[in-house]
Design a protein around this nucleic acid. Structure first.
Length: 548
DNA sequence: TCAAAGTTGCAGAG
DNA sequence: CTCTGCAACTTTGA
């Protein structure tokens, strides 16, 4: 019997190419798809497709960017691509950027190039599920091998759902029990390649360099309007190193104790945008944290610890991937059916930082300028928009966050809006964040508000969270007249929050009575009832005014 | 059936 | 900074 060594086999020596499709996972470290693409290939095509779905400028949008992404996130992505291209070039490769509908572009490339393997990171987002099935379908017909590993999350959501008998766990604790220790933790993660096969002949495919925001048709924004966070794997690894350098801080990290008003040095790692785009591997981050914990007799634990934060991410990925219509109230079996109002004026005031509550408005300004706000700040504004004060539909707020956050993540963003609106996971709707006292307890001087709302910078600290209570003499001295230079509060928190609680109690009762079978009509009836009650209330107020 | 638990509420007291 | 009282939701598990 004679088996020639593989290299002397003429068939094996034949030219073989791979296509590495980057979407998220914009990194070289811990990248199993890239590792597999490079293995045994004479050449590799590293591709990124600029997708008009996310990147087409929309001049009608409420702030610069596309209809689905604010300019901050688009810029963050482009910076990540530049960094990736640079890292590839250092290893004898380069990034091939193409434009168009991704599945069409990919299929064109597969037709044009001699490719035996197609490699890309598995993605649970519905948008990518649809894209990927189109591409996989073509690849199967063309007899191209597809390799699509799970490397964006610590766990494969499918495994956890299967362990739980086909349904995703709905509480964090049950998720932890099902998840256990990640399956990859016992063996080393893929190493960062030191050299990559060269790029093959690109034929007639139209390859561009990584575009600038201007080249994509966006108008450039002022430096001071921009996020202070730069995209890319290099930046992610620097930031990670910086965070885990302070070992005491890592070991004692407790998420709810963080200060949402800290902006010179944020109270968290701000690694979320890097995890979102996969500039940082969540598995590598997890390993680094375990390394730190090893040297401490005592350290914090999930849900509040840093590892706990990574597990929250996986929790939401798991629930989201196993819940049809996760991003909608209707048709979503885990979402309470609540007759939210559809008030675009209230929504716009919230979005454009015109609520008249400085704490809320400052957070919304930071969201616009930085594309990042502290987790508790997200809680405050989300609660205010939905169950706390304005009773606006959580889907509306979700859309604003999804567009403006540089770390916006489909599963996590929707999960948190379900949470904060008391539609799922969390139901204690009488626990409402105060739009005045919550910020005050972290930042009694109001430095955060003064920084993001400079119009209020000379209001004394006694009134900085409630400027409408300041006597006119003080408003004049501070060169900020409430009602002229800064709005009056759009609602009175005291009465608005009481109303919200009452409405939620009724909506919950309806959900319970109909046992999850709330129809459109039932919701409509309840909404009409709320509207009638509001009319009566305002009529009574008018009569009272008349009498006075 | 009932108690216990749930990542992070508020106001007020000490 | 920690504690209570407030008012009071659902899910889970015995």
């Amino acid at each position: 019997m004679f088996f020639p060594p593989p290299t002397s086999n003429p068939k094996m020596a034949a030219v073989s190419g791979s296509l590495m499709w980057f979407r998220k996972g914009l990194r070289l470290h811990d990248n199993p798809a890239l590792e597999y693409a490079a293995k045994g290939s004479n050449y590799v095509y590293p591709v990124f497709v600029i997708d008009p779905h996310y990147m087409e400028p929309d001049p009608t949008a409420s702030s610069p960017g596309s209809s689905r992404a604010g300019l901050n996130r688009i810029r963050f992505l482009l910076e990540s691509l530049v960094d990736l291209d640079l890292s590839l070039k250092k290893r004898g490769s380069r990034l091939l950027v193409l434009k168009g509908e991704p599945s069409e572009v990919l299929i064109r490339c597969l037709k044009e190039w001699d490719v035996k393997k197609l490699c890309f990171e598995y993605d649970t987002d519905p948008y990518y599920q649809v894209l990927d099935s189109k591409v996989k379908h073509y690849a199967a017909a063309a007899e191209i091998e597809v390799f699509s590993p799970v490397s964006h999350t610590l766990f494969n959501p499918v495994d956890i759902i299967q362990k739980n008998g086909g349904r995703p766990p709905l509480s964090y604790q049950s998720f932890l029990e099902l998840a256990g220790i990640p399956p990859w933790a016992s063996s080393p993660l893929p190493t960062t390649p030191s050299l990559l096969p060269p790029v093959g002949n690109v034929g007639s495919c139209e390859i561009i360099g990584v575009p600038t925001v201007k080249e994509l048709g966006f108008r450039d924004i002022e430096q001071e309007e921009m996020t202070p966070f730069r995209g890319g794997e290099s930046e992610a690894l620097n930031r990670l190193r910086e965070a885990i350098n302070d070992k005491e801080w890592v070991a004692n990290f407790e998420k709810p104790k963080g200060d949402p008003s800290a902006f010179l040095k944020p109270a968290t790692t701000v690694l979320s945008p890097y995890l979102k785009f996969g500039c940082l591997s969540s598995r590598y981050f997890y390993e680094c944290l375990q390394d730190v914990y090893k040297n401490f007799r005592k350290h914090t634990h999930p849900p509040v610890s840093l590892v706990g934060q990574l597990l929250w991410r996986d929790f939401f990925y798991t629930v989201a991937s196993g819940t049809p219509n996760f991003d909608h109230m209707k048709g979503n079996r885990i979402a309470k059916q609540i007759p939210w109002n559809d008030d675009d004026q209230l929504l716009a005031a919230w979005r454009e930082a015109r609520t008249g509550y400085p704490w809320i408005d400052a957070i919304m300004v930071q969201l616009h300028k930085w594309g990042w706000i502290h987790h508790l700040a997200r809680h405050c504004v989300a609660c205010f928009l939905t169950r706390g004060d304005l009773f606006v539909h959580w889907e509306k707020g979700r859309d604003v966050f999804e567009r403006l956050l540089i770390d916006s993540d489909w599963a996590i963003n929707n999960g948190n809006w379900l949470w904060l609106s008391c539609s799922s996971f969390f139901y204690q709707y009488h626990r409402i964040y105060s739009p005045t006292s919550f910020g005050k307890k972290y930042d009694p001087e109001g430095n955060y508000v003064r920084h993001f709302l400079p119009i209020l910078k000379d209001i004394p600290k006694e009134y900085i969270y409630e400027p409408w209570k300041a006597p006119l003499s003080i408003q004049t001295k501070a060169k900020c007249i409430i009602g002229r230079d800064y709005p009056q509060p759009i609602v009175s928190h005291d009465s608005a929050s009481k109303e919200c609680k009452r409405k939620l109690a009724e909506a919950y009762a309806l959900n319970q009575k109909l046992n999850g079978q709330v129809r459109d009509e039932d919701l409509k009836n309840l909404r009409r009832k709320f509207e009638q009650e509001e009319d009566q209330l305002s009529n009574r107020r008018k009569q009272k005014q008349k009498l006075e």
